[in-house]
């Protein structure tokens, strides 16, 4: 019992180390790649570009529903005027980075794991290696760098449209004065809040995209199932691990930032 616990602990530490080395060496290796800009643009499009619609949609609805919920809570205290503070701060500090990261994981992260897992099964990763191309740097490197840019950028979109959603419910639908709403939004959010939100976004991006690519790249070692089922299992687990990582990291970072 104790021995098996110990073995699990050791293998976890081992895996953690492996994953860290994998991520850093992919990022470092990318710097030695050729045609970096083209690869980076492709990766940004892949991770960020295809997430824009979903981010805008989810951001808008989040803002709408927050406007609604917070309005009635604040109205009970007679503090409707603070709607702008409440919506703005919760979006910028928490919901923006967290929900954006979860959306990107669901949309791009899982696709990336499946793609890499398929490429592993199809021996495309081996093929790169025989061509003298470092597969990690070539396939994973650009995506990790792109994540560092895409997550904050999409978080900014989310925050902006979310605040706009809060305005729609708060001022258009209910009766918070529009000027009061926007004043409170801009007065309450400080530069430190924005910076904190971006720090979170960058960390979430690095965590989730490296988890998703690690799971895909090594799907043949991580899953006992072969072929397509092994790949789909890897994708599922990548999403689960990434989501847990986002929430756990959010708690940790918040406790440092507060």
């Amino acid at each position: 019992m104790i021995r098996s616990l110990g073995r699990t602990a050791i293998s976890l530490v081992h895996e953690y180390g492996d994953w860290t080395v994998f991520s850093f060496s992919s990022m470092a290796g990318f710097l030695r790649q050729r045609r970096r800009r083209q690869k980076l643009v492709t990766a940004i499009h892949e991770i960020g570009g295809r997430c824009v619609p979903i981010i805008l949609t989810v951001g808008l609805f989040t803002g709408l529903v927050m406007g609604l919920q917070l309005y009635y809570t604040l109205a009970r205290l007679g503090a409707e005027a603070a709607l702008g503070d409440a919506v703005g701060l919760s979006l910028v500090r928490e919901l923006g980075p967290v929900l954006t990261a979860l959306m990107i994981v669901g949309q791009s992260g899982s696709a990336m794991t499946s793609e890499l897992g398929f490429q592993r099964n199809d021996e495309q990763i081996d093929a790169l290696q025989t061509m003298g191309i470092d597969a990690k740097s070539f396939l994973v490197g650009p995506r990790l760098w792109a994540a560092l840019f895409c997550f904050p950028a999409l978080t900014a979109f989310f925050d902006l449209i979310g605040v706009f959603g809060g305005y729609l419910t708060g001022s258009v639908l209910l009766n918070v004065d529009a000027g009061v709403y926007w004043n409170h939004v801009f007065d309450s959010i400080t530069w430190a809040d924005v910076r904190g939100g971006f720090i979170k976004a960058v960390i979430f991006g690095a965590l989730t995209i490296s988890i998703c690519s690690y799971r895909g790249f090594y799907s043949h070692l991580k899953s006992n199932l072969r072929g397509v089922r092994g790949v789909s299992e890897s994708a599922t687990r990548a999403v689960v691990f990434s989501s847990v990582a986002v929430l756990a990291a959010d708690y940790l970072i918040t406790s440092f930032l507060i």
Binding site: Q33, R34, R35, Q119, D122, E123, Q124, D126, A127, T130, M131, G132, I133, F138
Partner: peptide, 25 residues
């Protein structure tokens, strides 16, 4: 190495596939 299932990249054209080792390595 020629792999059993060819291991060609689906997102690249035939030309780009063949060019890959020359361009990248």
């Amino acid at each position: 190495y020629m792999f059993q299932n060819n291991a060609l990249f689906d997102s690249l054209t035939a030309h780009e596939n063949v060019a890959l080792p020359l361009r990248e390595a």
